[in-house]
Design a binder for these strands. Structure first.
Length: 287
DNA sequence: AAAGCACCCTGTACGC
DNA sequence: TGCGTACAGGGTGCTT
């Protein structure tokens, strides 16, 4: 599932491949993908506002990609669970579940492919009000432990749900939340607003190091997911995961088998020995 | 405020 | 072999 490092890898691909070029044609056949704009009318809106426009910048906020056009309009893309952006030569046969195609000058097409259609594409104005509810970007917007502390201050919820909440901090998903908490030696059930200053320092450093490592390895491509970069390449960070999808395997620090529990409808992985301090009786403490 | 769940959706894995 | 089911979980929205 694409999280910040995967989206950033795609963004860098756009920088290398398509920024500065003009969009010559747009097709939007996946009506669910453009649902925010309103079905067939939305597809027309995307075509009208993107066709003939030059791509000035490719930006990222959390897990959202923002393609800034020369009109000031912004094409916003979220990959959801199974979305892929691929750059291919015009004329390449369309993969199944290809929902939106931006045909750039020079013969390269940017194709949005998304089997499960949790992802979306829409066009909006320069201020992107649709993303105003997001917290600061987990990499660019949280400069130090004190900033992280301010985001978590006063919150009585557990730290893992807080990290996953895009309104608190944007870009962290299930993989990088688990990996960051392991690196910081924090139990996923620790109370978010009651972390000590050393714990906040460890967590801030862990989030940054984990996200940067994910980017350095071009993201995580787990066996049961589809993540690939702009050119179809697989990421490699899954080979460096310490806890995620490693239930029963020994913790690299202490040898204790990694545990797994269902939390908020998804899996949480942690080392029960290295990651202490869970709230007694909280979800993962019971299993 | 926070937890927990249903929902959207399809590909894959697995048990019978 | 093949069918049904569980699972994967990002985001949203609802209820408790």
């Amino acid at each position: 599932m694409p999280e910040l490092p995967e989206v950033e890898t795609v963004r860098r691909g756009l920088d290398a491949e398509l920024v500065g070029r003009t969009i010559e044609a747009v097709t939007a056949t996946g009506l669910r993908t453009v649902r925010r704009l309103g079905g067939a009318a939305g597809a027309g809106l995307l075509v009208r506002r993107a066709t003939g426009r030059r791509l000035l910048h490719a930006e990222r906020h959390g897990k959202f990609l923002l393609l800034r056009l020369d009109t000031g309009d912004v094409v916003v893309i979220h990959l959801g669970m199974s979305g892929q952006l691929r750059a291919v030569p015009a004329g390449t046969p369309a993969a199944p579940h290809t929902h939106v195609v931006l045909a750039f000058e020079g013969g390269t097409e940017l194709r949005f492919v998304d089997p499960r259609t949790f992802g979306e594409v829409f066009v909006t104005g320069p201020d992107v009000p649709e993303l105003a509810h997001l917290g600061p970007d987990a990499l660019a917007g949280v400069p130090d432990a004190a900033a992280l502390g301010r985001l978590l201050a006063g919150r009585r919820r557990r730290i893992k749900p807080a990290l996953l909440d895009q309104q608190v901090i944007a870009g962290i998903g299930n993989i990088y939340a688990d990996e960051s908490l392991w690196a910081a030696r924090l139990h996923p059930d620790r109370a978010a607003g009651e972390l000590s200053r050393p714990a906040l320092r460890r967590l801030h450093a862990a989030i940054h190091a984990t996200l940067l490592a994910g980017i350095a390895h071009r993201g995580s491509s787990l066996a049961d997911e589809q993540y690939r970069d702009l050119w179809g390449g697989l990421g490699g960070y899954q080979h460096h995961h310490e806890v995620h999808a490693r239930e029963g395997k020994p913790c690299s620090r202490c040898g204790t088998p990694i545990r797994r529990a269902r939390d908020l409808g998804r899996s949480t992985y942690w080392c029960p020995r290295c990651q202490r301090g869970g709230i007694p009786g909280a979800v993962t403490g019971l299993r």
